[in-house]
Amino acid sequence: MNTLTPSEYLPEKSADTTRFTRNFRAEKFDFWSFFFSGLTGAATWLIVAILATILLNIGINGWSAISWHFVSTIPKKDFFDANTTGVLPMIVGTSIRVIVMTIFVIPVGVITAIYLTEYAANTSLLTRIIRAAVNNLAGVPSIVFGLFGLGFFINFVGKNLDKILHNTDAVWGQPALVWASLTLAVMTLPVVIVATEESLKAIPAGLREASLALGATKLQTILRVVLPQALPGILTGGILAVSRAAGEVAPILFTGVAYYMASLPSHLSDQFMDLGYHVFVLSTQSPNIEQTRPILYATVLVLLILTFALNLVAVLIRSNIRKKMRSMH
């Protein structure tokens, strides 16, 4: 300890004699803090406004154009005619491809998440590689998934399948529902993994320990204690994957979507019509955009209801899980 007296080494006392009697009003208005708080606030509200504009524009215009006839009709070849057209095959096609995708992606995604949270050592090289792969998969452009579907599922798996089954015509070695679904399953795999992992992590370790302490095996603990608790999270993952996949067009461009089909798809090797692709076709190929506008808005509204409603549900469940998790820590 040095030997200086406090007044020697402490900062100068201010000459201010009103010390202790001065009030606590702000000396001067802090303009820059006010300005920048306002600026970032404006940025935030601008984003919200953009979202609201898009939704309202589509909601209002779409609502006035949509009808029961529209969603329940299989259109004729000229689907640009506002009076006779419908989107039933597109709704069916989009739904089926998403359902088939779910069957593939949920088990694989959930099992991977279970491995990552319950079994893997967090620091091991392999775990880190798996995580890096998941992250990367999430960042691969959707069009590259389309190329992958074409190059792997159709040109490799499909063509070889045809060879093995001795099909003279291409049955599997061509764009088909199953290939589009599989391509989407690969694309949404990270969505399911991340959501499931999040919900698994939110389960208190005490619960697992309690089960293990009763003599349950790890697998029993996972199946009977952990998974039931994680169900909302897994559900969220599934819904997010479905909502993401339902709106994607690029990955199915080369793997299964059809411009027009007279009947609904009936087989996994059939091609299908799709809502998102139909939006693309209507907005870029229409001979008269003014006449197509109402049915275009109606189609977009159907697509949005399908994807957005699901997404909203998922976001709500998810923020609930996060809140629970935060209150835990």
């Binding site: 009030n23 606590f24 009003r25």
Partner: peptide, 20 residues
Amino acid sequence: KIGGHDIYAKDVDAIELRKR
């Protein structure tokens, strides 16, 4: 109150308070 001034009064600036 600090030094006779109510620090929860309406016109008190919390930032100014924390400086002191």
